[in-house]
Simulated assay, not measured.
Amino acid sequence: LIPVIIGICKKSGFKQTKLLMPLVFAAAMGGNISLIGAPGNMIAQAGLQQAGLGSFNFFDYGLVGLPILIVGTIFYATIGKRFLPDTPSHQPDGAFEGNDDYSHVPSWKKWTAAIILILTVAAMIFEKQLGVKLYVSAWVGALVLVATNVISESAAVRSIDMKTIMLFAGSMALGDAMVKTGTGSVIADIIVNSLGASPSPIVVLVVIFVLGVFMTNFMSNTATCALLVPIGLSLAAQLGFDPKAVLAAIVIASSLAYATPIGMPANTMVYNIAGYSFMDYVKAGLPLIVVSSIVALILLPILFPF
């Protein structure tokens, strides 16, 4: 959507600085609607499954994520827009100067791609009923696109983002190492000891949530999930809490990476394009973090009781 926003700004006269940052925030909030919305969502799912503690349903995160998206959108459409930077727009990055022309693509390819997309997402949503894993549905959908010549094999291979795959794989290995070496349990012990013998679930929720929000704004939100998931599982085991409730809090907290340009890849993508400064993210992102945190801390204990 970055080139779309740049095109809108060119034709309408709107400043890129007023639209690119809300685009990034919306993408981050929308990532919490489903299980496949962000890598951290799947990391928590994998951690839960590896521990033999069940799994999240496709739209479980959306119980909290959708209200955050709605409230966040209303906030930025009314009050939050005044926090957006009002600086001259830079020349767009060369990679985003033009939009691809898809007018030559045959209608049958467009319809086929749309149908396969809908069927693939439906298969993911009804994973348990069909007995087909998410990754199997995704690969089947991709293979059908190649088999029907909607996309060529070489184009399909080029579309695979190996950086994302390596980041996900490395994060999983890091989380697994924290479990097997006992690091997660040690950190969980420190948290438990600092909170007392039998801490209140609400206090634990707030501590985990604040820790996640702080960490995710200074490191990758995916890495934050990878670090906190084994700690959360150890905490849940020691205190007798529902692990799904703890991991849901970690996932939502890790997504609130709005206050720095390094909190998530999308922030970094628009950082140079719009000519933002570090403080622009702090001024625009911090209020949204506060609003999102209030919504999350109200809904999490209700929808995911410890």
Rank of each mutant, 00 (worst) to 15 (best):
I2W: 09
P3A: 07
I6C: 08
I8N: 00
K11H: 13
S12I: 04
Q16V: 00
K18M: 14
K18N: 15
L23N: 13
V24M: 10
A26R: 03
G30I: 10
G31A: 03
L35K: 05
G37H: 04
G40E: 11
G40K: 10
I43H: 09
I43N: 11
Q45D: 05
L48C: 08
A51M: 07
S55F: 05
F58I: 01
F58R: 02
F58C: 02
D60A: 04
L63S: 04
I68H: 03
I68K: 00
I70E: 10
T73E: 11
I74D: 06
A77V: 14
T78W: 12
R82T: 15
R82Y: 15
F83Y: 15
D86P: 11
D86H: 13
S89C: 04
G94H: 11
A95R: 15
E97H: 14
E97L: 14
G98S: 14
N99M: 15
S103F: 09
S103T: 14
H104V: 00
V105M: 03
P106Y: 04
K109N: 11
K109S: 09
T112Q: 02
A113N: 10
I115P: 03
L117M: 12
I118R: 03
L119C: 14
L119E: 06
A122V: 12
I125R: 01
K128H: 07
L130R: 00
G131Q: 00
V132Q: 01
V132N: 04
Y135I: 11
Y135W: 13
V136T: 10
V136I: 13
W139M: 14
V140N: 08
V140D: 08
G141M: 02
A142F: 03
L143C: 11
A156S: 15
A156V: 06
V157H: 09
K163F: 07
T164C: 01
A169E: 02
D176Q: 10
K180P: 00
T181Y: 01
T181H: 02
T181I: 04
G182N: 07
D189V: 06
V192H: 10
N193L: 12
L195C: 05
A197R: 01
P199F: 07
P199E: 06
V203M: 13
V206L: 13
V206K: 01
V207C: 05
F209Q: 02
F209V: 03
L211N: 02
N217Q: 02
F218L: 09
N221R: 07
N221M: 09
N221S: 09
A223Y: 02
C225M: 15
A226Y: 07
L227K: 10
I231F: 04
L233T: 00
L235V: 07
P243N: 08
V246W: 00
L247Y: 09
A248S: 15
V251A: 14
A253F: 04
S254V: 06
S254I: 06
S255M: 14
A257E: 06
A259Q: 13
P261S: 13
A266K: 12
M269S: 10
V270H: 06
N272P: 00
I273E: 12
G275V: 04
Y276D: 12
Y281R: 10
L286T: 14
S292R: 08
V295T: 08
A296R: 08
L300M: 02
I302Q: 02
